[in-house]
Design a protein around this nucleic acid. Structure first.
Lengths: 141, 141
DNA sequence: ATTTATGCAAAACTTTTGCATGGGA
DNA sequence: TCCCATGCAAAAGTTTTGCATAAAT
């Protein structure tokens, strides 16, 4: 008996069916380590299973976003979102504004601020995205 | 003699001309306190000065993004970005995942982490966006 | 006087919709 | 068996381009 991934558990918990489209999109996202444009998700799914329609891919990306599994952000072009995986509800990276390369990091020390905001604003916080912008070593002329 | 806003100074410093299109877009952004969709920027500019073309608005939004004056993020729908103002290079808010209402806050205590990342990754950091997701008081059933 | 930026309108893309059908639970 | 989710293809929108012209410095 295998243990389901946290994301699959999230789907079940939300009462969603584990369909081919959803499982395939999830596999594609994880194969790219969770930094991938919608266009590349479309291509990836097409390659793995051409029977899956574009509409289902978009519907799945919307669903995953709603469930907090992924989060769209503007990185490459403004025409296609880049989705990042939200492991345990959060994600942190530095993006080079020149070459668009990104660098993920884990520790963000956001626990205290999170609790502080929950009390101050009376909000139940489920996750966060922290994005730094700058010039990477190679792009600093 | 009046002092230019920091954003106008940024434009000058980058060698950009202070055109009607750019000044108008900037005015519209500031009138909305810097949380505004591209569609609303389009409408706002149209209302203020109908002679300004859509293309210029998009070109200006791209320019401002490149200069770090604003930053696009996905909030309402996936079809139109919501632009937030980057005051002093950074911006922080909490978004209710249910009603999409947002709550800005100033203090993020990110100075130590910024310095740490600059050293560790050898990157020159110019700004950041910190987004929390959760349920606001009204949306917690 | 130069050269950057604009406006216009069409073109290019991505994403969404409606509806009959298939596949999970 | 029941109903959610899918696939298809067309429709809806937003954003981008190319080029002659205007306007900022």
């Amino acid at each position: 008996m295998t243990t389901d991934s946290p994301h699959i558990q999230r789907l079940k918990q939300a009462g969603c069916r584990l369909t081919q489209a959803r499982l395939t999109v999830l596999a594609v996202l994880e194969a790219e380590h969770g930094h991938i444009t919608s266009a590349d998700v479309l291509d990836g799914v097409e390659r793995v299973n051409p029977a899956i329609g574009r509409a289902s891919v978009f519907r799945t990306l919307d669903l995953f976003t709603q469930l907090g599994i992924i989060r769209p952000t503007y990185i490459d072009t403004s025409l296609t979102p880049t989705y990042v995986m939200m492991r345990d509800g959060h994600h942190h990276h530095v993006i080079c504004t020149e070459c668009k390369r990104f660098f993920e990091f884990d520790d963000c020390g956001m626990e205290a601020l999170t609790r502080n905001l929950e009390e101050t604003l009376d909000i139940r916080i489920s996750g966060h995205l922290l994005e730094f912008y700058g010039l990477c070593a190679a792009c600093q002329t």
